[in-house]
């Protein structure tokens, strides 16, 4: 059986367009609202959903996602709670791939095998652990692989040609290209450099390549979508959630509108190329 991730990227390829990967934090601003947000994402145009599970020490995150993690923890968020959240989402949606994203310690604490089993049962499809580089991920990757789940690897501007084979070894699902050196959401993406990097990576792998970490608006999303197989947006959505929640405005509507705006940009990016 092909995975939901493979099916989704195959479908995107058939449609001749890039996909939008939308990141939100579980339990932000609270459990039930975050479930409603995640449920609304596919209809708003997200092709893949990344669900952050909150961690006390998110060392690669910029201020937006740090604060989202703090809100999530305050609302009672945890890895277990995030898995339960994904299970509830999966009851109504059998096709949208869900990637869990976070840090190694909560997974280590649960145990790699137990985590893999529970993630499979919940209906997750892949996992990104920011502080678990290839050199340290064998146990977790094997456990996930045993359940048919992908451990998504990251490539960055510092991943040079000598190191790239280490990153690509044994990887499944897709490759996540971190387009800036820095924390999430803090720096604007250099579109030309990111596109050049995607071209370079494409020469070494047949895996789909998603690009993220500095995409905040329709313009940059569109530019990246012309080269990459998918565009990852996180901080921009998390900021909308934070503002709406703080203002007492309807959170699900607000974030759905933002997702729709960026999804349109991603979906139409290559059409502009064709008509230009």
């Amino acid at each position: 059986m092909t995975s939901r991730i493979d099916q989704r990227f195959a479908a995107l390829k058939a449609e001749g367009r890039a996909g939008l990967v939308a990141y939100v934090m579980a339990f932000d601003p609270d459990l039930e609202t975050s479930l409603e947000i995640i449920k609304a994402l596919p209809a708003a145009g997200a092709d893949v959903i990344e669900v952050g599970f909150p961690f006390s020490d998110p060392m690669a995150e910029g201020p937006s996602i740090q604060k989202a993690a703090e809100r999530g923890l305050k609302a009672g968020g945890s890895l277990k709670g995030t898995l339960d959240l994904v299970a509830r989402f999966r009851e109504a949606d059998q096709t949208t791939p869900v990637i869990l994203m976070g840090y190694a310690n909560p997974v280590e604490h649960m145990g790699a095998e137990a985590f893999a089993t529970r993630a499979k049962t919940a209906g997750a499809d892949g996992v990104i652990l920011v502080d678990l580089p290839p050199e340290e991920d064998l146990e977790t990757r094997s456990a996930l692989g045993g359940q048919g789940l992908s451990l998504i690897r990251l490539a960055t501007p510092t991943t040079d040609a000598a190191r790239l084979p280490v990153v690509l070894e044994g990887v499944t699902g897709f490759l996540y290209y971190v387009s800036v050196t820095g924390v999430t959401g803090a720096r604007a993406i250099g579109v030309d450099a990111a596109r050049a990097a995607v071209e370079r990576l494409k020469r070494s792998t047949d895996l789909p390549i998603a690009v993220g970490f500095g995409v905040r608006d329709a313009q940059s999303a569109s530019a990246v979508a012309r080269a990459a197989d998918a565009v990852v947006v996180g901080s921009a959505f998390v900021d909308v959630i934070a503002k709406a929640a703080a203002d007492g405005a309807p959170v699900v509507e607000a974030v759905s509108a933002k997702v729709s705006e960026l999804a349109r940009a991603v979906r139409t990016a290559r059409e502009q190329d064709k008509t230009a």
Binding site: M59, A60, A104, V130, D131, L132, P133, E135, E136, R153, L154, A155, T156, P157, T158, T159, D160, R163, V167, V178, T181, G182
Partner: peptide, 21 residues
């Protein structure tokens, strides 16, 4: 691999891996 038994190692984001190496 930088380990003392099971302890130690290099649990850093990919961006930093080439730097610690």
């Amino acid at each position: 691999s930088g380990k003392f038994g099971i302890y130690g190692g290099r649990f850093v984001p990919e961006t930093l891996m080439p730097l610690v190496l």
